[in-house]
Amino acid sequence: MSDHPITVTVNGVEYERQVEARKLLIHFVRDDLDLTGSHIGCDTGNCGACSMIVNGTLVKSCMMLAVQADGATVETVEGLADGEELTPLQKSFSEHHALQCGYCTPGMLMSATALLRENPSPSEDEIKKALQGNLCRCTGYWNIFEAVKAVAR
């Protein structure tokens, strides 16, 4: 089986790599690019721990092939903060204790970031709907809702 050359821009950095067609985007980002902030929590596309923003659209990177990201712009949790300066959402997650183990947090932050870009003033129902695809097993979500609400305008 042939490898496919791909060029992907992740968090502003352009990467050129060869990938097997079967490699999932999440494995590519974690194992080939060593950007391990995005996680894997299931093998059926349910948990959302691998959520990334690809060409401006929130996706689960375990249901996309790396080769499909050829030419794409990808944003992951590592790209949120500006150097040491966390985004208001990242700060709010900490302030509201919206994370415990932190394993779902990268994906959760990407989903919340995508929501706030599209809808800076979401209602509580809209927040819940936007985060439905991200499972958290620690918090029960309540504090996550609060954290997102606090930065919604």
């Binding site: 950007l35 391990t36 902030g37 996680h39 894997i40 992951t76 949120l80 990242q90 900490s94």
Partner: peptide, 23 residues
């Protein structure tokens, strides 16, 4: 007091080191 958690800075930036991150 509810002081800010020390863990949060790394965990909100994807800088935690979970087992599968070790290579």
């Amino acid at each position: 007091q509810n002081v800010p958690r020390k863990e949060d800075k790394r965990l909100t930036q994807g800088q935690g080191v979970f087992v599968d991150d070790v290579k």
